[in-house]
Write a protein that binds this DNA or RNA. Sequence first.
DNA 1: CGACTTTGACCCGCGC
DNA 2: GCGCGGGTCAAAGTCG
Length: 258
Amino acid sequence: MSDPEFRDFYYHVEATDMFRVSPADQYPSSYMSFTDCLHGSTDEYGSLENAFGMSPSSSKVFSPTKKERVDVNSGEVLAIAPNSSISSYSSEAACNCEEDSENNKNKQPKESKAAKKKEERKQKEPRFAFVTKSEVDHLEDGYRWRKYGQKAVKNSPYPRSYYRCTTQKCTVKKRVERNAAALLQLSMFRPPQLAGTTSFPHELFMQMAPHHMSDPAGAAASMFAENPSQQHYYQHQVSESDYGLLQDMVPSMFLKHE
DNA sequence: CGACTTTGACCCGCGC
DNA sequence: GCGCGGGTCAAAGTCG
């Protein structure tokens, strides 16, 4: 199980304003990469794509939560529970809302603080999650991250780390956890032609299913496209018990092994 | 000394 | 109502 060659991480990035897509810059070439998403309207950060490209190998999947599923073929999010995180909200709310609310936290009386927090939870930030394989714990992605928490994860020997971007005006957060189960599955099932070549989720999807080229982005893009001023949450976590879901998401050819 | 990590405590939502 | 788990806070420690 413990193959030192690979470590699986969930890079679960929660973006706020960085994910906003204005009508003008909607998926110019039919899809939007993670980098595009993250870098959104700003140029001041380094290239995530380059940074990730440096990792020896990686493969990721787009992913919904337990309550959500992404149809790989259509790119649609399925089975969204009511009040799930796939929700939309105004761009005003999205813009640095987290930072503002955090700044306010300490200044506000307890009652309204609690109320505010409750309100915040209703309006979830858009999220983006993917699985990557990397030999390094800390992928250099052009951002400066500050770790603000670590929790033991149920059914996993590895803790989950919580990071927030320390760049000014950057409210992005990310969760990183290593997944032993997915590690085995993905390293077993990864087709040879993908080994060491995939560096980004959309690339993975393109390689896995060329005829669905627009879908990876599509998955995110179509959601954005519905209403460019709104943000959507797009997340999935693969766990041992979620392997069935992994099968749903990953083309069968990808899962065949021996 | 500032930036960052570590880690226990706390809060909250959710399922039973 | 209670317990559990996830997410965050914040004080203390570490590092350059």
